[in-house]
Amino acid sequence: MIEARGLTKKYGETVAVDNLSFNVQSGKITGFLGPNGAGKTTTMRLILGLDRPTRGSVTVNGRRLNQLAWPMREVGALIDAKAVHGGRSAYNHLLCLAQTNNLPKRRVHEVLDLVGLHDVARKRTKGFSLGMGQRLGIAAALLGDPQILMFDEPVNGLDPEGILWIRNLMKALAAEGRTVFVSSHLMSEMENTADDLIVIGRGKLIAQSTIAEFIAANSQQSVRVSTPQRAEFAAVVAAAGATVRDDSDDRLVVLGLTPAQVGDLAFEHGVRLHELSPAHASLEQAFMELTASSVEFQAGLPGVAPDQQAVGAGKVN
């Protein structure tokens, strides 16, 4: 269990983390979402005690990290896969970390096997690819067989195979009852893996809920309709109190009515339908709408009004 209470971190005048309070529940995968620059990495650094909070506190299993008896055996973290001495071999890198917590050499071999780096264990890490570096970072996090694992943007820059590997790993870790706290700036990454969500923007908490609650609260159901009588049916639907707009494929998107209601309306008014399909706004879209106002560096899309950008950039399934 990770608990943050009023966590605040300022770097000079810049507020990186602003009065953040949240709980990361044990035995679940908690996605930590926010746009780039939202303060995710800073929050993780505060949890690990790398940075000292300006105000507030954060505890792991009820204690600050430096008060844990065997830190590596309770928390494993991958913040930055490049944070290794490139002149040291993978084996020695893991060994020097293991020794701080009196972990046996056997364990170093185990984690090297686990992440598939055994063949290059004696190679210096400066020659490692991004994927190998990421695996080494994960090996270091798993060294102490900890109950709590933290990964900061673990799939960044990985190829599809590497992404799949990390996803499966996180699921396997959670299946063993471990707590996984993983940050990402991509909602789609969390959609399939996380149980809980913590969303921040500009250092502030925007939402904390389970993934199901988040979907229910943030995604509007819509109905996609394809008909040869578009203009006519649009008027019918609008008259029934729903919002209607054209999507890019010349279909109508109806908001505020269920598929059954739309079908009944069409029947009553004798409108022929070629397609009637329910659509959920994707989590990506919900996330973008939620954080649109808190993106640190907002880029304008050419030809799109700012209030439509979030919708335009997300895809409707």
Binding site: L50, L68, I79, V84, T100, L143
Partner: peptide, 11 residues
């Protein structure tokens, strides 16, 4: 950057 990894292991 090793300091960050090292201080996570021994805070």
């Amino acid at each position: 950057g090793m300091i960050r990894t090292a201080l996570t292991a021994m805070p």
